[in-house]
């Protein structure tokens, strides 16, 4: 009985890994943006644009790398719009983010109908996809070997990227500046940190990561292009940032949890437990609210792991305080 249980959880984890990869990319990207004080609600739009452009590029060139690069660049470009509107023009970040999500959704759908061969739709085309690479020996470890070491290259990259990002934000000089800009741009500015440049940079990086998240969907998780391929994953990523309390490492746990929710649902039905699907789908958001309540309620906790103080606020140097 016990072995069945472990096998069950291993298979759930395996699906969670596959589903969670795009979430981790998008979430890490959003952490970058929010740490610099820019709330980017356009993640969903950036992801779906990354997905459609990445798939189209990979399909036409036959080259996976071309797809990945294109998708990430398109995500970055979308973020650049957000930067210009919110950092240079000082418009409201929520409004701009929502607009970009809507824009991305519409534009991706439009492009999806045109970017196939000779202006035909992309839907139904089969293009190149990221292959799972089995790492010898390591993948033979009982239960977890297959889960951790039989994945595609984008998932493997995260094994390095996530700890690197966490270290970068916590311990390096530029990471310190990044945090300062998000917490108190006035303070950072008088100390000679270029607030505008910093916010532009990390928001665009965030867009690149969101694009990569989209690319992973259309080139690996559900290969091919379908309308609304992201299915709200961009929003989950935004929620995940809070759930992970702006920490890249914790975002992985969250992504696995959130990504695994669907997997659990299928498996649970298979073994006869009947939890309503709607309830499970709700779980990520419910947990996010719980985390939000906890970190808001306890003051000490809020100061340590709460949202950056200047999140969502435009910065104007000459404004009187």
């Amino acid at each position: 009985m016990q072995t069945v249980d472990i096998a069950f959880w291993a298979s759930v984890l395996s699906i969670a890994m596959a589903a969670g990869t795009s979430l981790v990319y998008a979430t890490v990207g959003e952490i970058f943006a929010e740490k610099s004080g820019v709330l980017n609600l356009g993640v969903e739009g950036m992801m779906i644009m990354g997905a459609v452009s990445g798939f189209a590029a990979a399909y036409h060139s036959g080259n996976i790398l071309a797809g990945v690069v294109t998708g990430s660049m398109v995500g970055g470009l979308m973020a650049l719009i957000h930067c210009f509107v919110t950092i240079t023009l000082l418009a409201d970040q929520v409004v701009s983010g929502l607009a970009i999500t809507l824009l991305g959704g519409g534009l991706a759908s439009f492009l999806g109908q045109r970017l196939g061969v000779d202006g035909t739709p992309l839907v139904g085309l089969i293009g190149p996809r990221l292959l799972q690479i089995r790492i010898p020996y390591l993948s033979d470890i009982a239960y977890i070997g297959d889960v951790l070491f039989n994945r595609d290259i984008m998932t493997y990259s995260l094994y390095i990227v996530v700890p690197l990002v966490a270290f970068y934000i916590r311990r390096t000089r530029p990471g310190l500046f990044l945090r300062a800009v998000g917490e108190n741009p006035q303070a950072a500015d008088v100390m000679g940190v270029d607030v505008v440049k910093c916010r532009y940079f990390y928001t665009v990086i965030g867009g690149v990561f969101a694009g990569l998240g989209g690319v992973h969907l259309s080139l690996s998780y559900t290969p091919g292009w379908t309308e609304s391929i992201t299915g709200g994953r961009g929003w989950i990523a935004v929620a995940l940032v809070i759930f992970a309390t702006w920490d890249p490492i914790r975002s992985v746990v969250g992504a696995l949890l959130f990504g695994g929710v669907n997997a659990i649902q299928f498996r649970m039905q298979a073994i006869g437990t009947n939890v309503p699907a709607a309830l499970l789908n709700m779980l990520p958001y419910l947990l996010t609210i719980v985390v939000l309540v906890i970190i808001t309620y306890f003051e000490g906790l809020r100061k340590k792991v709460g949202a950056p103080d200047a999140l969502g606020l435009p910065y104007i140097r000459e404004e009187r305080v």
Partner: peptide, 22 residues
């Protein structure tokens, strides 16, 4: 103009471009 959630030290070195990344 201090970053509340950072330490005294972190506030002091804010904005200084050092040769070392870490």
């Amino acid at each position: 103009r201090l970053v509340q959630s950072q330490t005294v030290l972190e506030n002091c070195i804010l904005g200084i471009q050092g040769s070392n990344l870490v």
